[in-house]
Amino acid sequence: MRLEPREHVSLLTLVAGPVLAVVAAMAICSLLIVWSGSSVLEAYALLFKGALGSRFAISETLTRTTVLIFTGLAAAVAFRAKLWNIGGEGQLYMGACAATMLGTGLLEWSAYLLIPTLFLAGALAGGLLLIVPTLLKTHLKVDEVVTTLLLNFIILLVVNYLVFGPWKDPMAMGWPQAAPIIDQGLLPPLLAKTRLHAGLLVALAFAIGTWVLMRFTVWGYEIRAVGANPKAAGFAGVPVNRTIIRTALISGGLAGMAGVCELIGLKGYLTLDLSPGFGYTGIVVAMLAGLNPLGVIFSSFFVAVVFNGADSMSRALSVSNYIAEVITAVSLLAVLVSMLLTRYRIKWK
């Protein structure tokens, strides 16, 4: 068996690849549904109905899309520079912590000033968290995969300490949660009687902004060059280490804003279940999008459909909602294969 590079890859194949991968993933996962004794068609019908079947369902799905756009962008930018930031989860919580610190009464500014400040603080916190493993990578050659992963566990314990300890809200009836964000710090709702909030617009703006950055600016060019071939980029005069550090600030910042968005848009106060692994899911989102920031909008919507749909499907059928995680994991593996097939053709000999 040999792999032969294709000379032309049309835009259609580039879009069709991930779509087919997702279809294949759902086909593979239907085996699990069969095993659980439910009808595959009924299960998937319930899944899509649960995610898209009503105004409320769509609003819930879009709410989940919002946070996934941020974590997906974070992974997409970092992976483009071959900076393996697997620490999105920790950065998300760091962002939420920063927003909690400033937004629960410390700054009593008007909404127009406070909300951008909270986003900025969250981005800074997330970015600074990623700077640590990145500097270790650029200066001491410490592999960033393991350090970013391990930092997730450390940060979660820090949040655990904060919400059980100094930040515990005495008004919360003993629940481990921080004080609520003051009203001026909360994002306005987007649709009446739903949980959908203006964070979606912020997320979309950042997706477009990131696309512009990666596509049309020198910084973006440098990030892509370093990812494609750091040695060649260095010879061509790209400041490799500075670019990697800049990438880390952007990527960590986006993940930090995911935390802010979820905090001031949805939950209102910091808890330990602010994110059920959105940081990790962001990796799948980014890969499904082929690391394209605009693609992230669509892939995060798809992943949100799977997760929200699976929740409502599992209530109706005897299929555990862990099926959502299985589907996204299989999609990730399937999209890897589809990317290979769009760039190479397999020659059997």
């Binding site: 990790y280 862990y322 995680e325 994991a329 299989v330 990730l332 593996l333």
Partner: peptide, 12 residues
């Protein structure tokens, strides 16, 4: 991907 698949499949 294998980590996500193996753990989610185990829990499932």
């Amino acid at each position: 991907g294998i980590t996500m698949l193996a753990s989610s499949l185990s829990y499932f």
